[in-house]
Write a protein that binds this DNA or RNA. Structure first.
Lengths: 187, 187
DNA sequence: ACCTGAACACCGTTCAAGT
DNA sequence: ACCTGAACACCGTTCAAGT
């Protein structure tokens, strides 16, 4: 594997273990078998390295949805699966999603994939509406509401703020399914 | 003002300006007019200082909702205002809300206020349901969905991921109002 | 009880230099 | 093109000491 990929993998592991604070370029280099300074030959700085991780995660989500649609799934089914996948990934890798939604100074790559991913989700909502599977309304707002709820529900779950009194053990994916039911036209 | 309060205020200003990375105990001490070491006489470490900020923000939200209800507002109206307030605050002070939903090692104070805040919101949902203003369903799940959507929508807005193609300029508060309409029984 | 100053280990980043 | 090692400024935290 190329040095660049090993650097990204090491950084991603550290990020998942303990957030951006644990991602030190020195430890990244150590795990990749190079000097503490080698990362600067592949990334402008620490932020650019983290941005690459965020962009890869977003690309993964987009390819899953795109592949599902290309495989012939109905848009409403592909949408449901994508929203649940997004939420489950955000619960499993919370730090990656905090990166994705953080502020970025100069990450053109991340901006592009975020735009494409959002556009694909909006058009999927529109197609589901045209088939009568979703309630009417601005597809962009419906897609944004779904992404917002998935992201927020994942944060609630990882923070332990779901079901604080022990009852009704709703998970983050349960919450987005509640929302999908509210948006469903056949319900 | 007591040193402790000046430390918290300085830390909050730095947090809002540039996130936890900009909150250095040295600069906090400088702005509060004490040494770089004085913060350790009031807080165990940097994390505890940040936890205090998060707890104060949560307390503020809870007091607003509690005061609204105590003032005689209908639960469904108080709930709507509270959800919109939460979302607007999360857009205005995103770093505080990232703290609130982050991982906490040992912040009993924050845990307590988060629990109380969540309990109050759930009971408000229940009362609104009893008055026939909200659709039926587990009030805890409905409350959680509202908090999740508000938090996620705020993240989308601050990240610039809302309305990426320039159309349909929905704000974070617009999205939670869409959700409130879906949950409304009279609609 | 509250604060200061020195010190330690660590980190992001830069620079000169190597192959 | 890719990497190394030294160096700089900075930070969280600890410790001994002061009032």
């Amino acid at each position: 594997m190329a040095t660049r990929d090993r650097l990204i993998e090491a950084a991603q592991d550290l990020l998942d273990e303990g957030g951006p604070v644990l991602v030190t370029l020195r430890e990244v280099g150590r795990r990749a078998g190079v000097s503490h300074n080698a990362p600067y030959k592949h990334f402008a700085n620490k932020e650019e390295l983290l941005a690459e991780i965020a962009a890869r995660e977003l690309s993964y989500l987009q390819e899953e949805l795109g592949g599902d649609l290309a495989g012939g799934s109905a848009p409403e089914d592909a949408l449901t699966r994508s929203v649940i996948l997004q939420t489950a990934r955000a619960v499993r890798f919370p730090e990656r999603y905090r990166l994705i939604y953080g502020r970025w100074n100069s990450s053109a790559g991340l901006d592009r994939v975020a735009f494409e991913s959002s556009t694909l989700m909006t058009s999927t909502v529109r197609h589901a509406q045209e088939r009568g599977a979703l309630i009417p309304g601005d597809p962009e707002r419906i897609a944004a509401l779904l992404r917002a709820a998935g992201r927020g529900a994942a944060e609630l779950e990882t923070a332990g703020h779901l079901a604080p009194d022990g009852k009704g053990k709703a998970s983050a994916t349960d919450l987005v399914q509640d929302l999908l039911r509210l948006l469903s036209a056949t319900d």
